[in-house]
């Protein structure tokens, strides 16, 4: 990721599309970042705390994906 500056407002269609795209980008960034953290040995609780969500939420969203990606997961503590 590099710079993020809010540009002067444009056509509403462009701005709405930017909302959609940044949401999607945030989802992908979350996938990448969570995988990196888990590979680095973070626990579910630590990742959840860093994201500001519950451990259950982060586990539900990412556990299967990480297992499929071959990440060795720490116990759910």
């Amino acid at each position: 990721m590099s710079g993020a500056e809010v540009p002067a407002s444009r056509d509403p269609g462009e701005e709405l599309a930017a909302v959609v795209a940044t949401r999607r980008l945030a989802d992908r960034m979350e996938d990448v970042a969570v995988e990196k953290a888990m590979r680095a040995g973070w626990s579910w609780s630590e990742v959840a705390e860093a994201l500001g969500v519950t451990r259950q939420a982060v586990h539900k969203k990412h556990a299967r994906k990480l297992i499929e990606a071959g990440v060795r997961l720490r116990r759910r503590t």
Binding site: P7, V20, A21, L25
Partner: peptide, 11 residues
Amino acid sequence: SLGTAGVTAAD
């Protein structure tokens, strides 16, 4: 659309 938001993802 990311560009519209001023975001360039280098990664």
